[in-house]
Write a protein that binds this DNA or RNA. Structure first.
Length: 426
RNA sequence: GGAGAGGUGGCAGAGUGGUCGAAUGCACCGCACUCGAAAUGCGGCAUACCUUCGCGGGUAUCGAGGGUUCAAAUCCCUCCCUCUCCGCCA
């Protein structure tokens, strides 16, 4: 959520920043709602005050043994007026809340302008894509060789956009997740967490998936209305919802390996082959909750934490700064890491690292207290994949393939594979 | 799933429908005392929003949401959560 004070004091500025991401702010509507809200709130509170004063007077009179009938008569009309005022106020307030809850975050000054992914700016590349002296197979073909990666089976079990992994590929998948988790906890200082894979609506509102993007989520039937998590960012970031932290508790660095569930309602027809875009995939997620002054330094740090995984795996990648138009709803600045996929001869997203500044914190009422400042201040929240396990798996399969369809296990993963150095061999 | 007991400020813990935003204790902060500290005394100590240049004033919040009432932490309803016992289970 954007700062209501800023929306009020400088709507032109907000509109201009939002325009960078292709969002049009209806200033006239905002201002009309705001002025009506203010008017109604003041009037309602005055009525409320009057009623409180009179009720107290009745209490005193009664305690003093006086006749309270005349006082009751005086107060008669007040209740109706108050009810009406409250109703009107609630209506306007809700309209305003709905409008503001639907506004995306403002892009940071350093974010490049642009409308879509074509305008993202490459920051740097690492590694050199390997030249193959044979015709490369994509991960679907490689995985099908011994039935280690089976999409048809998953379709029978469930439906499209799911995968079954078996044998060494299933183990490679597990090895990747274990390796990532170890790296983030042991070398980068994150606390390992195990979290619910279902969350309530409040958590999703806190991180910004709701109310606007419900169609991307799997909602469970039943009275409690839980949702499957689309990313561990949701449970991890919501650790601090409605909390006032001690400054000494910051930065809070959390990581978790979880499955992620996405309905991808708007993505039909894209990446239908293979496991690029699945309804269920595993991810190791990093979340940091920090003091505002440090958040941009932390963003760079977290990008490094994600890059470290790809480097250790010897996977060529590039880093792009997302342009304003391509960023997610809550992000003020985002880096995407894109891994080289030989079968597509292109880089594909494998990690996204974002600084949400106080956007999520304001929705969550997540604050911290420092000795210098009397009032609690909003924290800044950041999240990043470190990394997407499924996409990483397919990157390994494709980049480490041999002419005979076997796949070398990256050196760093071999200890996690019981010393196995090559899979898919005859 | 069944039966019972509960959810009050950072924590503990009072609270008869009416001067209750809420006693008291602990923790924390300031001041006094002290060479310093401890102990003691005095004072302060929730959050959000509205209003004011400021001092200040106002509104809301006692798990959540409804209801009764001139007035609700207190009464009624629904839901959520916690604890104890039983059942079932990994």
């Amino acid at each position: 959520m954007l700062d209501p004070k800023l929306l009020r004091s400088d709507p032109q500025f907000v509109a201009q920043r939002l325009a960078l991401r292709g969002f049009t702010l209806d200033i006239a509507r905002l201002e009309s709602l705001e002025s009506r809200r203010r008017e109604l709130q003041t009037a309602t509170e005055q009525l409320q005050n009057e009623r409180n004063v009179r009720s107290k007077a009745i209490g005193k009179a009664k305690a003093a043994g006086e006749d309270i009938q005349p006082l009751l008569a005086e107060v008669g009309q007040l209740g109706d007026d108050l009810d009406r005022a409250k109703r009107e106020l609630a209506e306007v307030q809700r309209a305003w809340d709905d409008m503001v809850a639907g506004l995306p975050n403002l892009p940071h000054d350093s974010v490049p302008e642009g409308a879509d992914e074509n305008d993202n700016v490459e920051l740097h590349r690492w590694g050199t894509p390997r030249e193959f002296d044979f015709e490369v197979r994509d991960h679907v073909d490689l995985g099908a060789r011994f039935g280690y990666l089976d999409f048809e089976l998953a379709t029978k079990l469930t439906g499209s956009r799911f995968a079954v992994m078996r044998g060494p590929i299933a183990r490679l998948h597990r090895a990747l997740a274990q390796f990532m988790l170890d790296k983030q906890t042991q070398e980068h200082g994150y606390e390992e967490c195990y979290v619910p894979y279902m969350v309530n609506a409040d958590s999703l509102v806190g991180t910004g998936q709701l109310p606007k993007f419900g169609e991307d989520l799997f909602r469970l039937t039943g009275d409690n209305g839980y949702y499957l998590i689309p990313t561990a960012e949701v449970p991890l970031t919501n650790f601090v919802r409605d909390e006032i932290l001690d400054r000494a508790a910051l930065p809070l660095k959390l990581t978790a390996h979880t499955p992620c569930f996405r309905s991808e309602a708007g993505a039909y027809g894209r990446d239908t082959r293979g496991m690029i875009r699945q309804h269920q995939f595993d991810k190791v997620e990093m979340v940091q909750v920090v003091e505002p002054a440090t958040s941009y330094a932390v963003l760079e740090e977290m990008r490094g934490h994600a890059e470290a995984i790809l480097r250790a795996l010897e996977l060529p990648y590039r880093v792009v700064t997302l342009c304003a138009g391509d960023m997610g709803f809550g992000a003020a600045k985002t880096y995407d890491l894109e891994v080289w996929l030989p079968s597509q001869r292109t880089y594909r997203e494998i990690s996204s690292v974002s600084n949400c500044e106080d956007f999520q914190a304001r929705r969550m009422q997540a604050r911290f207290r420092s000795p210098e400042q009397k009032k609690p201040q909003l924290v800044h929240t950041l999240n990043g994949s470190g990394l997407a396990v499924g996409r990483c798996l397919l990157a390994v399969l494709e980049n480490f393939q041999n002419a005979d369809g076997s796949i070398d296990v990256p050196a760093i993963l071999q200890p996690y594979m019981g010393g196995v150095t090559r899979i898919n061999a005859d």
